[in-house]
Design a protein around this nucleic acid. Structure first.
Lengths: 158, 158
DNA sequence: ATAAATACGTTGCATATGCAACGAAAATCG
DNA sequence: CGATTTTCGTTGCATATGCAACGTATTTAT
C-alpha cells in the first residue's frame, strides 16, 4: 500500500492499491456476507435485510417504536418505516398507536411474524457458528476490532 | 448470542441479539467507514465511492476495460459503466475503443483525472494510517480475517 | 466457412435509497 | 397557560442500484 514510486518529475507518488485499502476490504467482506445472507432470506422467506433487522429487533425487544429500531439497529427512519409497512402488509408485524404518546407507533410481531423469526433464526445462528469456526481463535479479536471501528467512525470521520 | 431461554411450551428458543451478529457488525462498521469516506470525497471532490474506485483502479493499472474493473474491484458492470460515463463527462477519464478487440472499451485517466487522484490519495492514506493506529498490533490479523471472509463468501454462502 | 455460443458494454425498467418536507403530537419556554 | 421548539413517523422526490435484455463483436464448434 505504501511503496513509493518516483515519477518523471522527481516527485514521489505513493503506489495505492485499492485491494489493500482497509475500508475497501471491509466493504467487500460486508457486501459478500450480506449478499449471501440476503439470498437465503429472500429465496426462502421473501424478506430483505432491512425486513430481517426489524423482525429480529422486534423479536428481541418484544415491541418497539420506529425510533427505537432506528437507533438500535442503525437504519434510517424512513427505511424502518417502509420495512414496517411491508411487514405489516404481509401480516408479520402489527402497528398500534402508543397509548401514552400518540406520536409513537408501537410495532410488534404477530404470531405469524414470531413463527417466521423462529424459522429464520437457525439459519443465522448457523452462519454465525460458521464464521466463528472460520476465524477460529482470532474471532473474539475480530469482533472487538469491528466494534472499535464502528464506535470510532460513528458520526464523523474519526 | 447463544443464551437459551425456555418458552412456555417447554421448547428452547435461542436468544438472538442482532448487535452481536457478526454479519451485522461487519455491515455496520463498513457502512460507517464508507459514509465517513464518502462524505469527504463528495464534499471536497464531488465524486462517489464507485467513482473513486474506478479512478483508483485506473491510476493503479494505468488503463483497463470495464470488465477488468468489474472483476478487480468487485462492482457490477453497469455500475462501472455508469461511473465511467460520469467521469468521462467530467473530463477525468478517457474512453477509447480497444484496437484489437472492438468489444472492449479502454478506460484511462486524463491528466485532470491523474491530478484528482493525486489530490485524493493523501486523504485515503491518512485514513488508512489512522485505522492501522486504531487497531494497533491487531491490525494485521484483522486484515487477514477480512480477506478470509471475503474469500470464503465470495459467490455462495460458504 | 458458416452457424451457434459466448463475451462485452450500455440501457431500460422496476425497485431501493437518502434526504428534506410535512402534519401531528408532545415538551419546553416565557 | 399560550407560544415556540422539538420529536415522531410518513411521504414526495431525485438519485442509485441490480437485473435482464439488447446490439455488437469475438470465439468456438460443426
Amino acid at each position: 500500500m505504501n511503496d513509493d514510486s518516483v515519477r518523471g518529475d522527481g516527485a514521489v507518488q505513493p503506489v495505492f492499491d485499492l485491494t489493500q485499502f482497509t475500508p475497501y476490504k471491509l466493504a467487500l467482506a460486508a457486501q459478500l456476507l450480506s449478499e449471501a445472507l440476503a439470498r437465503q432470506y429472500r429465496q426462502r422467506f421473501g424478506i430483505s435485510i432491512p425486513d430481517w433487522r426489524v423482525l429480529v429487533h422486534l423479536s428481541h425487544s418484544g415491541g418497539a417504536s420506529v425510533r427505537d429500531i432506528e437507533t438500535s439497529v442503525v437504519m434510517e427512519k424512513s427505511k424502518v418505516s417502509r420495512a414496517a409497512s411491508r411487514l405489516e402488509g404481509r401480516g408479520l408485524v402489527a402497528k398500534r398507536p402508543h397509548p401514552e404518546d400518540k406520536r409513537l407507533v408501537h410495532l410488534s410481531l404477530t404470531p405469524e411474524g414470531q413463527a417466521l423469526v423462529a424459522e429464520i433464526q437457525p439459519l443465522a445462528l448457523t452462519l454465525q457458528a460458521q464464521i466463528e469456526a472460520d476465524l477460529g481463535a482470532g474471532f473474539a479479536d475480530f469482533a472487538k476490532a469491528l466494534d472499535l471501528l464502528a464506535d470510532k467512525y460513528n458520526l464523523q470521520g474519526g
